[in-house]
Amino acid sequence: MHRLLRWILLVALPFVLLMGGVAWIDPFNYFDGPGPVPLETRRANLRHSGATMPHYTLTWKLIEYRRAPVADIIIGDSRLTRFDAGLVSSITGRPLYNFGVPGGNTPSMLRTFWYADSLAKLETVYLQTGFRNWSAAQDYDIWEGPAWAASSAVRYLTDRDVLGKAWLDARAHWGGVQAEGIADDQWAKVISNERAVLEQYAPAPHFATELRRVAERCRERGIRLVIIDLPVHDEVHRMEEALGLGAGIAAYKELMRSTAAYCDFAGPSAITADRAQYIDALHTSKALLDGVIREIWQGPAVNGTVSDGPVAGR
């Protein structure tokens, strides 16, 4: 009996130590306690590399939002990385939670809505999206893993990605490992990736069905749903035109317009030509994004259209 117990304890020991280490470092701030690795380091490591960024960011945000849910949220993709929710709050006078996730796609965005809806009495939901997200080729999963890890303490402590993040945090804190940062050829990489995304474009009627379910839920619960299409650089528009995607884009915009209030800044305008205003062809600089925020929430909308006037005014 004693031999068996020793055998079980010895097999279990490495895992007890690993789980203890994860709980101590708490890479996604699940336990919200004072860990050895500062919160800023753990937060910075969410963006350590392109490969881990989507899962890490979503896990962090699911946990963070559950701890302190608010009634106004903005859901979207990596283009919300430099989105200043504080600026919006200063205009509306209401807290806004930024659910922007690098690599976020339509399925993960819509599931985020249902997640937030299960935790809070939502009042305003901003859905930041774009034509590229409404392609069947973008139907991949980034939700299941983070949702699993965030759903309970046992799952959190035994999840491989959480363990990986704890290891990264430890190396960053004690070993001086730095995040990868923005690559020199970021623009070219994004263009190449975007070309592939647009070339693979295929209509995704099931996304539209899911969006309508969300809109229906919003109507039932009196939640204001606002769809926001942020500007992209003209190089993307030229690709869309060259690939003959005009009809697809028109159908997509019609779907957005017919579903909810729609803030459309995605077309060519005065702010889509200057490369200096962009990190890469998809991601605007913070200064440009702040300007767009003011146009949407305060008005007037000069570089895009906002159905029904400034968002904050309604």
């Binding site: 010895l10 097999v11 490495p14």
Partner: peptide
């Protein structure tokens, strides 16, 4: 032998596909 046991349990915990 212990490496096999620990590896097996580790694979179950960290490499199991639990999301489906």
């Amino acid at each position: 032998r212990w490496a096999v046991y620990v590896g097996l349990v580790g694979a179950i915990i960290y490499y199991g596909a639990y999301h489906g």
